[in-house]
């Protein structure tokens, strides 16, 4: 749950660990960018065999500044309501921070998060048009760095506190 959304046509996979009072303690999240400003997400907890839904809409996309709204943890089959949120973020090249608020059940919570692009490569597998191959052919160090950053994994930690 960060204010950045996947670019149109991009699919990302996340592994999440979180307090069980928020949602599934261990779950996988698949995010698919539908447009330049919106994505849908599916959360899957294999232990509990439950699946939640989420979505995000980018209201402001002037990087490094982002503002998004959406909802997460919606389980229509378990009759659990979606948790709407609003988030603003500063999305730097390597270091990223976000603040926001989320309505979960009967209470409101603040959101404070930090995300970092991995300094090491790996974790990426191109099934599409071969970004890695393009990267290797590029002779520009600056371009290589830009592409390398875009394909590196991102680690984020978010703290939700009851308001």
């Amino acid at each position: 749950m960060t204010p950045d959304s996947q670019p149109e046509g991009d699919l990302s996979l996340s592994f999440q660990i979180q307090d069980k009072r928020i949602a599934n303690p261990y779950q996988l999240q698949a995010e698919l960018g539908l447009t330049e400003w919106g994505e849908v997400a599916v959360f899957r907890d294999f232990a509990a065999r439950r699946m939640d839904l989420g979505t995000e809409i980018g209201l402001l996309r002037k990087e490094p500044y982002l503002l998004s709204i959406g909802f997460i943890n919606w389980s229509p089959h378990l009759d659990e309501d979606p948790q709407p949120f609003i988030e603003a973020g500063y999305w730097g090249e390597h270091h990223r921070v976000c603040v926001g608020a989320i309505h979960a059940g009967y209470k409101n919570e603040s959101i404070l998060g930090y995300a970092m692009i991995s300094m090491r490569g790996g974790g990426y597998r191109s099934i599409g048009k071969g970004v890695l191959k393009t990267h290797r052919r590029s002779g520009s160090p600056a371009t290589s760095r830009a592409i390398s950053n875009s394909i590196r994994p991102c680690t984020s930690v978010i703290v939700r506190t009851t308001i």
């Binding site: 996947q6 991009d10 991102c154 680690t155 984020s156 506190t161």
Partner: peptide
């Protein structure tokens, strides 16, 4: 009460056209 969410994300599929260098093919190279 505070709760922590830890997330590790990587891209499975996609092609970011905005950062792909212009000269990605032999076209125009003489």
């Amino acid at each position: 009460m505070g709760y922590i969410v830890f997330t590790y994300t990587f891209r499975l599929w996609g092609d970011r056209k905005d950062i792909v260098p212009v000269a990605t093919s032999a076209t125009g190279v003489k």
